[in-house]
Amino acid sequence: MDVVVLVKQVPDTESLIQIEGDGVSIKTDDIKWVMNPYDELAVEAALQIKEAKGGTVTILSLGPEKTVETIRTALAMGADKGVHIFDPAADGSDALSKGKLLAAALKTLPFDLVIAGMRAVDEDNYQVGSAVAELLDIPQISQVTKVAVEDQTIKCHRVIEGGTVVVEATLPALFTTQRGLNEPRYASLPGIMKAKKKPIDTLSLADLGIDPETVGPAGRKVKVAVLNFPPDRKTVKMVDGGNPGEMAAKLVKILHEDVKAI
């Protein structure tokens, strides 16, 4: 079973996000970059499938030069090889263009299964996995919490509003990860040493046969007009009182009479 995992490098969730002077991008200098948490679940799922069924795990990532660090992290967890789409002309692509670039790269790779995160915690687009599946014309199952792989099919549990469904798809297919799927392993020291020798191929737009005008800023269907910080909340009103009973009575009175939330 050949599995390709789509991995994105994103700002650590603790990061302070600041808006650049242009008003449409974020400052990147002080950010700590990490693997998207949902993609950690995807790498772990791929490694578990490889352990059970044999085959290969390839990490595919699109991004600037430093993306290589995140690819290495995945290799240190146990993946076999990396593919890095790296081309300045791809900078500033929107989610759909990213899907096009990743799908084009996937067409050059052997795969039975593609695993992506359900969302990247930077732009929170929840989009790239579905775009890739569509452009490859393969079935997708999103937000998966449990997976069983057979020879020709995968069976996935997905939690939906008000319940769980089990969906079966024929391979090749793509699924996206939801929390609960697994607990991602950490890279071990020997893993980190081995990762240094594992191959990472770099692909440019020319390698992928993609016209630079169709991706990057020129290809955007979604244009950021402006970035804002969310409005501040008013300062908290602490409900005081001598004992829990008094505080509770005051709180419930406010919620009922003033804000009408109860």
Binding site: D94, A95, L96, G99, D124, N125, Y126, Q127, G129, S130, A131, A133, E134, L135, Q140, S142, Q143, R158, V159, I160, E161, R220, K221, V222
Partner: peptide
């Protein structure tokens, strides 16, 4: 809606129609 179903459908639809998507 940006529900579990709506996220899945809108993203696939955007790719099929080659259209821009404002998620969530």
């Amino acid at each position: 809606g940006a529900s579990t179903q709506g996220k899945d459908l809108s993203a696939r639809l955007a790719a099929r129609l080659d259209a821009g998507l404002a998620m969530d």
